[in-house]
Structure formats: structure tokens, C-alpha cells
């Protein structure tokens, strides 16, 4: 196969992939129409579900970034025994089916779970609570950020970190003012992937936190509940979710200087 034939084959591959991925998304919007979209936003229960989705995703992302950033920095800059095993463990939720993740969370944090009675003694309730949704989202979405953050920090030249330390900067200062700015595109890419995963989470949330309007019924769960009786209503809510998530992704990308979605590592 010659150069031109290869170019053609690659072009066809890209076109097929594009149609395959874009068509369902486009279909949601053509099926809905702008009037129905605005109707959906006016619906109280839909707004409630969207609010819950964004609130729980925001809190989950705070936890993921807060714990994930220093953890990823450690994993990227230090080599120690068991590092590879830890990396694998951290990535595990990526390949666990969401329903299994829900069961696993119940087995760990549910009333009959390993930590069940300890949590109960501490007065912490997760199952059927909004906090439980946050736990499910954090579990499922965290690897998307941490994985990317490890790769991004590993890409920071060691000489820069050494120079910073030789200039007398404390490790925290080096992380905040040297490593994070240099790794920023990769961190933002991981952030947006994790956020997207959190906003779309369904199975683990249903299994672990249940589904109750206003408390645990996030937008994907509301879409699922509505799909059965009101297909257009479910489509409209889906369209709103896609539009808002898309806008979020785009702004993260812009914040990263147009390179935020370039996958590193």
C-alpha cells in the first residue's frame, strides 16, 4: 500500500470513527429541539437532578484533586518498593464495572461492610445519602485524574525540581510553584476526564447510594428513570447534561491554553 492509499485509509478510519461517536450526540439534539430543551430546564425535577449532579461532582473533584495531586507527585518523583503495585491499585477502578464498584463500596462502607459499624459509631451515614453519591463518584473518577497527574509530573524535568530545591525552596513550594505550573496541561486533561466521568456516573451510584429525587438521584439516574415513560423528556435532560458538560470541558481546555486535552504520558 502506497503513501496515498495509506492516507486515504487513515482518512476513512477517522471519518468512520467521527460519525460513530458524533452521530448519537447529534441525534440527541436533533430529536430534542430548542423549545423542548428550554422546557426541560424549566422542569423542577430535572433542575434538581442537574444541581445534584454538579454539586456532588464538584465535591468529588475537590477530594480527588486535593488527595490526588500530592499522591501523584510522590508517585512520579520518588521511586520506592511497591510503587508499581500502588500505581496498578490506584488505576483499578478504571477497569471495574460500575455495578461491581457499587457492590464493592457496599461491602466496604455499607451498614454490613468492613467499616460499616465504625462509620455508624462515628455517626457517618453514606448509603442513601448525598455523601454516598460523592463517595461513588470519587471512587470511580479518581483514577482518571491521578493517572494523568502521575504522567504529567513525571514529565517535569528533574533539573527544574533540583534547581528549585537548591535555591532553598521547601518541597511544598516546589510542588506548588514549579511542578504544578509545568504539569498544568496534563493535570487539566486529567481533571476534565475525571469530571466527565463523575458527571456521567450511573451504576455505582445506583448500587451504593440508591436513587431518590433531590438526595441521590443525579442527572444520569433521572434520565434512566424518565426514559421509560417520557423518552423526549429524558432526551431533553440528556441534551442539557451534554451541553453543560461540553461547556465545562471547553472552558477547561481554554484554561489550559488550548492544550489541556492533549493527553500526556
Amino acid at each position: 500500500m502506497g503513501r496515498r492509499a495509506f492516507a486515504l485509509a487513515s482518512f476513512v478510519a477517522l471519518a468512520l470513527l467521527l460519525v460513530f461517536v458524533a452521530l448519537p450526540v447529534v441525534a440527541i439534539f436533533t430529536h430534542t429541539g430548542p423549545a423542548r430543551l428550554i422546557d426541560a430546564l424549566g422542569d423542577h425535577s430535572a433542575r434538581e437532578a442537574l444541581r445534584l449532579s454538579f454539586e456532588t461532582s464538584a465535591i468529588a473533584m475537590l477530594v480527588i484533586v486535593g488527595l490526588g495531586t500530592p499522591a501523584a507527585y510522590l508517585l512520579a518523583t520518588k521511586s520506592f518498593r511497591g510503587r508499581a503495585a500502588i500505581l496498578t491499585l490506584i488505576e483499578l477502578p478504571l477497569i471495574i464495572p460500575p455495578a461491581v464498584a457499587g457492590l464493592a463500596l457496599l461491602a466496604a462502607f455499607g451498614p454490613n461492610g468492613i467499616l460499616g459499624s465504625a462509620l455508624d459509631d462515628a455517626g457517618v451515614e453514606l448509603v442513601f445519602q448525598t455523601a454516598g453519591v460523592v463517595v461513588a463518584l470519587t471512587f470511580v473518577a479518581s483514577p482518571f485524574y491521578v493517572r494523568q497527574a502521575v504522567a504529567a509530573f513525571a514529565g517535569v524535568p528533574g533539573s527544574m525540581i533540583e534547581a528549585s530545591e537548591q535555591l532553598g525552596a521547601r518541597p511544598l513550594r516546589t510542588l506548588v510553584s514549579v511542578a504544578v505550573p509545568v504539569a498544568r496541561p496534563g493535570l487539566l486533561a486529567g481533571f476534565s476526564l475525571a469530571l466527565g466521568r463523575a458527571l456521567g456516573e450511573f451504576g455505582a451510584t445506583l448500587m451504593f447510594a440508591g436513587s431518590f429525587p433531590g438526595t441521590t438521584q443525579t442527572a444520569p439516574l433521572a434520565i434512566f428513570a424518565e426514559f421509560n415513560t417520557d423518552f423526549t423528556g429524558a432526551l431533553a435532560l440528556s441534551a442539557v447534561l451534554i451541553a453543560l458538560a461540553g461547556a465545562l470541558l471547553l472552558s477547561v481546555k481554554l484554561a489550559a491554553g488550548g492544550r489541556g486535552l492533549g493527553v500526556q504520558g
Binding site: 457492590l103 455499607g110 451498614p111 454490613n112 460499616g116 445506583l206 440508591g210 436513587s211 431518590f212
Partner: peptide
């Protein structure tokens, strides 16, 4: 006292057998 509205009977039973409800 209703904490969750499940999509089918199987998941209602599941919440009971897992000790969640």
C-alpha cells in the same frame, strides 16, 4: 422513610440482602 426509588424489583431485593435498607 423511603430512601430510594429503585428501577426494578431485583434492585429492591438487592438493597435488602446487602443490608442497605
Amino acid at each position: 422513610n423511603v430512601r430510594s426509588q429503585e428501577p426494578d424489583v431485583t434492585s429492591i431485593i438487592g438493597k435488602l440482602t446487602q443490608g442497605a435498607a
